[in-house]
Design a protein around this nucleic acid. Structure first.
Lengths: 241, 241
DNA sequence: CGCAAGATGCGTACGGTGTGCGCTACAATC
DNA sequence: GATTGTAGCGCACACCGTACGCATCTTGCG
């Protein structure tokens, strides 16, 4: 037996490639999103991702040009969770835009790692899913009655607000997640040390103390929709001229 | 005099520590900002930064806990460029807030690497300089007449917009800078391939064709102030009740 | 059916990263 | 002058992204 072990080895000991599930680009991106969601962006390495797929790190490069491209693909993949608006009719434009904005925020909070990327991409290397959302939004502003040379500025204003506030929220939630506490514990533990830090999400609210302590995420929701309404108020005012 | 020259070697040949400028935390942060400005965030490494200061990489750790903290310090350092508003008087609140917003945007465009950090910090680990700006802004909204439980939401809305749009602009400018072209060349080279990408900064504008080609950065300015005015319109409307 | 050609995965290796550890050499104090 | 704290450094470790070439599998064609 040891005789022929050198050139070929037995059929049984020979390292058969273990049956694997085909390692496609879609699988890789899906696994990347999963890893990003569960461990954050700084924990994403090609080796770790490969081992999650029962593959070597370098195998991924057969399907993905490099890590940056992989992240771009992951970003566009989660944009696929959003459903672009169905139609564009003038009377409901504000309700529809509000829904899109809320969805975009919710998507960002589900995948907090996406926030810095959103800024970094800046809609320059925009993918197909993101583009569907983007042009759906544009169509809403067009239907609302904004002139052609203004509708993109209006849409840009809205998305800037949403991305800005969602990024801030995402960072806050990521910090909490890293600490291992719940949002309420975190806020409570922060309050005594506070007073020197009048930041947005940890400030003592003058309002109802029950709500203040019990539902910090309700406060975040209120903050988001407050600002969203103001932005839309300001935009809507342009249509009354 | 030669008596106490030590047994080891001559004073001249002995490896005197080359006179260095004292390697303080401030120097390190200043050099980091310089490096970040000139080469971007992915080019910042402790070794490269050390060599710029004629020091070993590990020497920096005497003054700075780790790379993340260094970046936070760098962020707060550039916030020092902003001057907080002097007073807070009701009639000029809008003009003052506009100035702060424009300054914040200009700061971000001077240091494009800061944009993703701004989102990531989310005003959680806010430094003293950033806090000065933040509370100065809050004071403006208070003076404007916003009730106590609303002024922080108003300020949050404004900063979300500014950070959101500035991050997008910064990413766009960084992409151009990496390409080595000027903004006009870049936009011109993009137009023929465009049509499938209705993104904000590269869209063909229906307006004056001269301005369209000649001053893309004027377009960016217009876009910024358009959105800023809408946001402030929406906020100001809350004061008329 | 046999064989050539291409696609796919992987082992190895290279140059880079952040940073912990313990040593040296200087500064200031007693 | 002796002591003690400390700034800086060299080394080392574990990890990273990824280029390259080889082994293997799949597929199309004669």
């Amino acid at each position: 037996m040891p005789a022929n072990e050198k050139p070929t080895a037995s059929v049984w000991t020979r390292p058969r490639r273990p049956q694997r599930d085909q390692l496609t680009c879609e699988h890789i991106v899906a696994a990347a999103v999963e890893l990003l969601d569960s461990e954050g962006i700084e924990a994403l390495s090609m080796r770790k991702l490969g081992s999650r797929l029962n593959a070597a790190a370098t195998s991924l490069y057969r399907h993905v040009a490099n890590k940056d491209e992989l992240i771009q693909l992951a970003v566009d993949d989660v944009f696929g969770e959003l459903e672009p608006p169905a139609g564009a009719e003038r009377p409901q434009w504000r309700a529809t835009v509000t829904r899109i904005a809320a969805d975009l925020r919710a998507m960002t909070l589900r995948h907090p790692w996406i926030a810095p990327e959103l800024g970094q991409i800046g809609l320059v290397h925009i993918g197909p899913n993101a583009m569907r959302v983007s042009s759906g939004l544009l169509a809403q502003f067009e239907a609302a009655g904004f002139p052609a040379d203004e509708k993109d500025r209006a849409a840009g204003t809205l998305t800037a607000y949403v991305i800005g506030i969602a990024a801030s929220e995402a960072a806050y939630l990521s910090a909490i997640a890293r600490s291992g506490k719940t949002e309420q514990e975190w806020v409570a533990g922060l309050r005594p040390a506070s007073g020197e830090a009048p930041q947005r999400h940890s400030r003592p609210r003058e309002g109802d103390p029950v709500q203040r302590d019990a539902h910090p995420q309700q406060i975040r929701d209120d903050d988001f929709f407050y600002g969203l309404d103001r932005v839309l108020d300001g935009l809507a005012a342009r249509l009354d001229t």
